[in-house]
Design a binder for these strands. Structure first.
Length: 809
RNA sequence: GCCCGGGUGGCGGAAUGGUAUACGCGGAGGACUUAAAAUCCUCUGUCCUCACGGACUUGUGGGUUCGAGUCCCACCUCGGGCACCA
């Protein structure tokens, strides 16, 4: 093993002193912004999963630096939020104190993993100088009409005692703690992300992101093209508007379903014969948890509004109206026309409630209408559809919409971003509510009288140091108990007013941090937290690496915020990350790491035992970065041995060389391409092949230097030490990536495979450019081939230049 | 149910339609050593064979091709995302 401990100490100091990893932000000629999702500083310390992702990102940054780019690789801490707060609660340490402890420890560990971070541009989201601008961003949202307050049924986590955004509810459970989420009727702050639904969807086509993340966003935004069609209610002035993607099946609509929360239920139920029954159903439905609704998928429930009839605009038929919770109020119009013959859910419901099932689409043109045992949701030919009979269902859609006076529309599943949280450890929402102004219907927004943004000059609204920071569970933040915090003056009329006491979702902190890094220290006196020239130079981010679990959280919010800032002309781009790659999950012996299983790999332990370079290199050697890896303790010995052997070779005096050996070119080419594709594992195996050869044949000076440069992204310490020992100019990390000659990268001597009927029977050595007739002649001379040919007649010979001769019998 | 990824030795994993199993781990044998560790060398997909050699092998079944881990069709299976979204 090489003396890693001494080497690491030496170079950490020297790199810092010489600012090897600090680009000149103003003068840089080829800026390259290499970013990794910043971590939340858990008190437990840096997880090996963090290390895996960070090193994966750093290898790329170092590679780009060697290719001549001015690489900017900043680091900071996403320290606000429930995770940090919960830990503080558990340990009984105040989050503000805990943050300082975790910060120190985390930065120490981040230094130990040997990344080329720009340490001068650090940021922490809980720093008032940072969240001042998070609050400023909230104010801008408010001023541009993208922030609003509304009472509605929202997700509530009983364990975290706060509301959650839809994106934070994973399969009915809280994203943070796994507790089943319940519904609560509360007045909350929202951001109008839905305004950008279409742009968020469309722009995905133009960005180079991991496909799975783009697909997840597409699914989440959930665009459907369909139509709005109005159904008249007999004896009423109101109409019910439904959304459907299948207007072609309207002749088969045999009843109407309204979401129980739909406003029109309230208006119609008074005229129904069974008011009590309806009310009872509405209450039961409202009290159902997300989990119960999912469990009920097949067993549909509902209640008829007896005596109420809707009129099918296609054929004038009167059809019954139901309230049922299989229709959700927040999507489309909250009302549907039910076509049981062609929709599985309607079919289930119709069977249970004995409603007519009328076929209007036939699979074959000649097929006669019949009641089939299941719903047919596909395309076909219209039947039972008046003048549209015989038409292809897909083609009749438009005409039918016109015929019934409908309107074509696109609908999205995406809902507005619920931004307020009833917790302590976050940036206070910078809003003030004045009762007097509200009564007199004054304020900054006509629809929300009484509400004012805190004037920008008064930001930040500092999070007060309070003794009891635990969540209350009452639907109010702990700050609601702090009089000195919430008592203030109305910015409008000067009367006594009350501050908003909720804090904002910490995903707002991380939705703009990438904008801040390049301008850290340069923003003073600015109207917004970044320098325009610097931002134009460095952004958008050139390479962003992070976890796929943020596909619809951080990555979607960040895109939304950038689009808004672009519209306000504060930045010049709408997409913050040109390239995004999702790294895979790191496993331990095939299993997920977890504290409860006790199989968590602690990077500190391995770093002190084998050195940073070995841990870095082993992590990158496991598998392609995007695939994730499987950590086996025994496996690390492979790279430990490799580094030890490289060290030994570096101790000897190299053989003088004018230029690199011809055989190196193919290796340089492969490593260059592998690193570009984040296939670090094969790049490392290629380095191993090179070292094996250098050991066997004796290391030439140029060959070994090229080897060290290509090794340096993975093992920055050892590469730097040996580079110096070989007389290289400081630093190996600022030198140039070796170039390959494409002609030399192809070997001169080749082996042509000889096949008989596609089976390998031998091989012939030759120079490149072997002709077909020569190849055939040589092949037929082989003993093994002769034996085969004897038993048949030669039909054909296939020759692929310099690769294969196939004798077909 | 729909949409993305995967499925290759004992293990992690390599393979622009052209030598399947690179590189590494583990294992076996050997060298060095009083001994062990470390290090170095050789072997290591399965089956048949003393051997020479041969047959088989990339989840399953078909297909295209001179030739398929790779392309096409159907299915099984694991991981992830979405999900009563009309």
């Amino acid at each position: 093993m090489h003396p890693f401990s001494k080497i690491e100490k030496k170079w950490l100091k020297r790199w810092e002193k010489s600012r090897v990893y600090e680009p000149d932000r103003r003068k840089a000629k080829k800026p390259f912004y290499n970013l990794m999702m910043f971590p939340y500083p858990s008190a437990e310390g840096l997880h090996v999963g963090n290390a895996y992702a960070f090193v994966g990102s750093d290898v790329y940054g170092r590679f780009k630096r060697l290719q001549g780019y001015d690489v900017f690789e900043p680091i900071g801490l996403d320290g606000f939020g429930i995770h940090s707060e919960n830990y503080a609660i558990k340990k009984g340490v105040h989050p503000m104190k805990q943050a300082k402890i975790s910060e120190k420890n985390f930065y120490r560990q981040l230094q130990m993993i040997g990344n080329g971070f720009a340490w001068n541009e650090r940021l922490e989201t809980y720093d008032p100088e940072y969240y001042k601008w998070t609050q400023w961003l909230f104010v801008q949202m408010w001023k541009h009409g993208l922030a609003y307050r509304k009472k509605q049924s929202v997700n509530w986590c009983p364990s975290c005692k706060t509301v959650l955004a839809d994106e934070q509810v994973i399969a009915g459970k809280c994203e943070r703690c796994g507790t089943p989420v319940v519904r609560k009727e509360l007045e909350q702050w929202f951001f109008k992300i839905t305004k950008y639904a279409d742009k968020l969807l469309k722009d995905l086509d133009g960005i180079d992101w991991s496909e799975k993340v783009k697909t997840a966003q597409r699914n989440w935004i959930g665009k459907s093209s369909g139509a709005l069609i109005a159904f008249k209610i007999r004896g009423h002035l109101q109409t019910v508007e439904v959304f459907t993607t299948r207007p072609d099946t309207i002749f088969g609509a045999t009843y109407l379903v309204l979401a129980p929360e739909h406003g029109i239920v309230e208006a119609l139920k008074a005229d129904a014969e069974n008011l009590k029954e309806i009310d009872k159903y509405i209450i039961t439905a409202a009290n159902k948890s997300e989990g119960e609704r999912i469990a009920e998928k097949k067993a549909k429930t509902g209640v008829e509004l007896k005596g109420i009839k809707a009129i099918n605009p296609a054929n004038g038929q009167e059809i019954p109206v139901y309230a049922a919770d299989y229709v959700v109020s927040s999507y489309g119009t909250g009302a549907i026309m039910a076509v049981p013959a062609h929709d599985e859910r309607d079919f289930e419901f119709a069977k249970k409630f004995h409603l007519p099932i009328k076929q209007v689409v036939a699979k074959e043109k000649s097929e006669k209408p019949a009641v089939s045992p299941e719903a047919y949701g596909g395309e076909g030919y219209l039947v039972n559809s008046g003048k549209f009979n015989g038409l292809k269902s897909e083609e009749a859609k438009g005409d039918i919409v016109d015929y019934v006076g409908g309107k074509r529309v696109d609908t999205y599943k995406l809902r507005d971003w619920l931004i307020s949280r009833q917790r302590y450890w976050g940036p206070p929402i910078p809003m003030v509510y004045c009762e007097r102004c509200a009564e007199e219907r004054r304020g900054e927004n006509k629809e929300m009288p009484g509400w004012y943004a805190v004037p920008e000059k008064d930001l930040p609204v500092k999070l007060p140091m309070v003794e009891d920071f635990r969540p209350t569970g009452t639907g109010q933040s702990p700050l609601a108990a702090v009089k000195s915090f919430y008592e203030t003056k109305c910015p409008g009329c000067g009367a006594k007013a009350r501050r908003e006491t909720d804090v904002s979702d910490t995903f707002l902190d991380s939705a703009w941090y990438y904008l801040r890094y390049p301008s850290v220290g340069l923003e003073s006196g600015k109207k917004f937290p970044w320098d325009k020239i610097i931002t134009a130079k460095w952004l958008p981010v050139d390479m962003y690496i992070g976890g796929a679990e943020h596909a619809v959280l951080h990555l979607l919010y960040t895109r939304f915020v950038a689009m808004a800032l672009k519209d306000w002309k504060l930045i010049g781009f709408a997409e913050p990350f040109k390239v995004f790659r999702a790294h895979g999950l790191l496993l331990k012996e095939g299993a997920k790491m977890s504290k409860s299983k006790g199989n968590v790999v602690n990077p500190d332990e391995y770093i002190s035992k084998y050195g940073t370079d070995a841990v870095r290199m082993y992590l990158m050697f496991l598998a392609p970065l995007e695939q994730g890896g499987d950590w086996y303790d025994s496996g690390i010995m492979g790279v430990v041995r490799f580094l030890g052997r490289a060290w030994e070779v570096g101790q000897k005096k190299p053989i003088g060389q004018k230029s690199v050996s011809p055989w190196m070119h193919a290796h340089i080419k492969k490593i260059t391409m592998d690193i570009s594709a984040l296939h670090y594992n094969t790049a490392i195996s290629e380095l191993m092949v090179i070292l094996n050869r250098l050991e066997k044949e004796g290391a030439g000076q140029k060959d070994f230097q090229s080897f060290l440069i290509m090794l340096s992204p993975f093992a920055p310490f050892l590469a730097e030490e040996l580079w110096e020992a070989q007389g290289g100019k400081f630093s190996v990390h600022r030198t140039a990536w070796p170039k390959f000659n494409p002609d030399l990268a192809e070997p001169e001597e080749i082996e042509v495979i000889v096949q008989v009927n596609g089976k390998v029977r031998g091989r012939i050595k030759a120079k490149t450019g072997l002709s077909k007739s020569e190849a055939q002649k040589l092949a037929l001379e082989l003993e093994a081939v002769k034996k085969q040919v004897k038993s048949g007649t030669l039909k054909q010979v296939i020759y692929i230049q310099d690769k294969v001769v196939n004798i077909v019998l």
